[in-house]
Design a protein around this nucleic acid. Structure first.
Lengths: 144, 144
DNA sequence: AACAAAGAGGACAATTTTGTCCGAATTAAA
DNA sequence: TTTAATTCGGACAAAATTGTCCTCTTTGTT
């Protein structure tokens, strides 16, 4: 469904948000440990998220990654997925046709619309804050 | 969403079904032309579908691929996807956790359930015959 | 100013996915 | 029985994804 990079990116963002809510910066080492991902690869993905203005990085001693507290509730899963995997997953054709629409649909087009709409809705209506709070309350987990 | 191999496999199966309904066998050359896919790679995927008893192959001159007419309406998209990509796409965790369930859910678990259920339903309730008939009636297309 | 603790970025490596090629086996037809 | 048309299977190649490592730069602290 999502690429590994995207999975790590989502989990990392949630963990950073969780810590930013408590005014703590976190680095790739701690992040990768908490979300069970390869450290250097995770660092690369964090760089991409910084470039896409999803998270902030502070260089130098006592640096790390954080998210502006006021942004945490406005950053949606769709923003993160878009920054890493693009929007093909919830906009593209299920069978990979370049042009696939009501005029010239692929065989799955009609039925696939529902799945895509559900996925789009999930991604666009879920914000980082709610995900971070679930973790904080012990209602969901970032690793096994 | 699906791998390229799976996309090709689905489209190829539909095209073979369409032709089997009219008692025509088709080979990799014609198939890949009609579904716009690389020929040799498509041939490999067809082999996999044969091994999984989704389609039949007849070797030698005048050979080719076909599907038993009586099977066309009982082969589901899920069968094809399963044979090529496995069932992770509609059974696995959206964030890649090995164990992700109501007891120990990932942050997307609850919301993702809907998407997965929708996808599972689509795949398990759509049979090759209906897809092939849509193509035949010019209501959907296998390439641009 | 020197040092240590960070992120940034580029080069590289491993793995997976996608794709190609060719010889062997099979079969119908001449 | 030869030939041509075909699938099968393995080896290979290319591209994308995943992952590692090392150096550079930035910045707070002493």
């Amino acid at each position: 469904m999502f690429s590994k990079a995207c999975e790590y990116g989502i989990k990392a963002s949630i963990f950073i948000a969780l810590n930013s809510l408590e005014h703590r910066r976190v680095g790739p080492k701690e992040i990768s440990k908490e979300i069970n991902s390869p450290e250097a690869f995770t660092a690369k993905i964090l760089q991409a998220l910084v470039r896409n203005n999803i998270i902030n990085s502070i260089k130098g001693a006592h640096g790390g990654f954080e998210i502006d507290k006021k942004d945490i509730k406005t950053i949606m899963l769709a923003d993160i997925v878009n920054a890493i995997d693009g929007d093909n997953i919830y906009k593209g054709c299920g069978l990979g046709l370049q042009q696939c629409n009501a005029d010239k649909p692929c065989p799955m087009h009609e039925k696939f619309k529902l799945v895509r709409a559900e996925l789009k809705n999930l991604l666009e209506s879920t914000d980082l804050e709610s995900l971070a709070l679930d973790i904080k309350l012990g209602e969901s987990f970032l690793k096994n």
